[in-house]
Nucleic acid binder design. Structure first.
Lengths: 114, 114
DNA sequence: ATGAACCATAACCATATGGTTATGAATTGT
DNA sequence: ACAATTCATAACCATATGGTTATGGTTCAT
């Protein structure tokens, strides 16, 4: 059990900020549900212009929430759920009710596989 | 297992927005760790002015992340971790890696007390 | 070769955001 | 009664944010 000092955690900050915007969250949700997509495809469902989508993707990229892959003239983006870890860790620390539930299960697992 | 349409979830929106700011997150962390506190007490650890703290508390209040109780001239605030549920639910849906971990533990619990 | 498609960036704009100081209302202490 | 404490709100300000249109560089199709 690692104890994290409440001092500004840069990684967590990026993730929290990135997911604060509903349009950005929708883009991430889209990538999570329907898998890898081009900017063009994302734009069609985003409700905002292509440059806006590109900028949102840049923010998600800085938070490591998405990765990209160039293929010819199109860029394919995919969600990287592992980058949610800082947010999950934060909830583990400060979400008391939820933490209890989690730790109860955690302890149970440990007792199981010895 | 409830399926939530990705349409703007107002509750989740408030929670995500409220926790996006590091100062606000620090205030919530403070309340979670040290329990109920007055605005004055919170201000001493916040690094910003008292009015700034009050405004942050208003935002947290709208997200239901804190509750308050007037007692004479001071207002006592406390964290309400249950309000984190929308964020946890969102992670359950879109945090693939984490979801697996969670469901594995969830299933284990069911088999135990089943 | 030329035009269309795809994407990122630049330039710009309106509004939101997070901070400040000033102030006032209510409560407490002297 | 009067001064001090606590808190919220008002007024204000600088900057961040999220959107737009314009543009240019690649890549693909014809």
């Amino acid at each position: 059990m690692v104890m994290v000092h409440p001092v500004a955690n840069a990684k967590a900050n990026h993730v929290f900020r990135a997911l604060a915007d509903p349009t950005r969250r929708a883009i991430f949700e889209n990538l999570s549900r329907r898998g890898e997509q081009t900017v063009h495809s994302l734009t069609r469902h985003a409700g905002v212009s292509q440059p806006a989508v590109s900028k949102h993707l840049t923010v998600l990229k800085r938070a490591r929430l998405v990765r990209h892959r160039r293929e010819g003239r199109e860029t394919h983006y995919r969600a990287d759920a592992d980058a949610l870890a800082p947010m999950v860790n934060w909830l583990e620390q400060y979400g008391a009710f939820w933490r209890e539930r989690f730790e109860r299960l955690e302890g149970l697992l440990e007792r199981m596989d010895g």
